[in-house]
Amino acid sequence: MSISQSVFPESAIVSKLRAAGCVFAEDEARLLLSAGATPVELARMLDRRMAGFPLEHILGWVEFCGLRIAVDTGVFVPRRRTEFLVHEATALTAPGAVVLDLCCGGGALGAALSAAVGGIEVYAADIEPAAVACARRNLAAQGGRVYEGDLFEPLPDALRGSIDILLCNTPYVPTEMIETMPPEARLHEPRVTLDGGPDGLDVQRRVAADAARWLAPGGHLLVEASENQAPRTAELFEHGGLIPRIATSEELYATVVIGTRPCS
């Protein structure tokens, strides 16, 4: 038994977390106990969690596709459903592929795809400085190059027409729905990572309009969308010169729209 556990028994931590409304109190208690090196540190972490801070920001990491991805305070936390996007991308990616993780957040998608398919060339970009710093750490082992700026704007011109796989987990929550999200998301993650405009598709429109110019012939764009949004997203892809299809996962309650640039 650790010193922290002797001062704060797991059962007591579970009770506090349940009282604060944490649905997975037992799992969270174990994670906090393993992370809190001293009773003082554990107490500080527990207080933050009870105050509504995301567990992932308190721990400094999130498990995603079997990897431990660093997530700093103020950086978007990748959701488990987004693992389906990586699954779909893995089936389309060959070793040596050029991959771009756009709206990358902490770079979870690029890191996970790199772990699943060896020997790929990873680029990433995000508009949030905190996310860029985090992504650079998460993608360092893969030699990933991370750029700060708005969508394609900061990327080197040499990438135009050469990207085989474009991963883009854009914000797609309609503006009026932001206030219905859990407090740990809407209060502690940057609004720009959540708000997709009036219908949730503002950023997807911009990506779909430019993607064909950056994709290699036969390259693929993959974005996450809600089930209701997916047909409209597919139309945006088609208007942008891509051949769309929709993939769904009942297990993860996830929908991914895939657009392919024609080879000719």
Results as ranks from 00 to 15, higher is better:
residue 212 A to V: 14
residue 87 H to K: 09
residue 231 P to E: 04
residue 79 R to M: 03
residue 197 G to N: 00
residue 213 R to G: 12
residue 107 G to F: 02
residue 166 L to V: 12
residue 135 A to E: 08
residue 75 V to K: 06
residue 85 L to R: 11
residue 26 E to R: 14
residue 262 P to D: 11
residue 39 P to M: 03
residue 246 I to D: 08
residue 186 R to Q: 07
residue 105 G to P: 12
residue 216 A to S: 15
residue 150 D to S: 15
residue 217 P to T: 11
residue 58 I to A: 00
residue 208 A to W: 05
residue 203 V to S: 02
residue 145 R to M: 04
residue 234 A to I: 04
residue 221 L to Q: 09
residue 246 I to R: 12
residue 171 P to F: 07
residue 226 S to R: 06
residue 90 T to Y: 01
residue 242 L to R: 11
residue 29 A to M: 06
residue 200 G to P: 02
residue 214 W to I: 06
residue 102 L to F: 11
residue 241 G to S: 05
residue 35 A to D: 13
residue 15 S to Y: 02
residue 236 L to A: 03
residue 31 L to H: 07
residue 161 G to Q: 05
residue 1 M to D: 05
residue 3 I to Y: 09
residue 263 C to I: 11
residue 9 P to Y: 07
residue 217 P to S: 12
residue 170 T to E: 02
residue 104 C to W: 06
residue 32 L to Q: 03
residue 10 E to G: 07
residue 263 C to S: 14
residue 70 A to S: 13
residue 106 G to L: 01
residue 250 E to T: 08
residue 199 D to M: 03
residue 68 R to D: 07
residue 12 A to D: 12
residue 169 N to A: 12
residue 169 N to D: 14
residue 207 V to E: 10
residue 206 R to V: 07
residue 139 L to A: 13
residue 63 E to N: 13
residue 142 Q to M: 07
residue 227 E to W: 13
residue 249 S to E: 08
residue 173 V to L: 09
residue 86 V to A: 09
residue 146 V to H: 05
residue 209 A to C: 04
residue 85 L to M: 15
residue 244 P to S: 09
residue 245 R to K: 12
residue 231 P to F: 04
residue 189 E to C: 07
residue 145 R to A: 10
residue 154 P to F: 12
residue 114 S to C: 13
residue 231 P to Q: 06
residue 143 G to L: 05
residue 138 N to G: 09
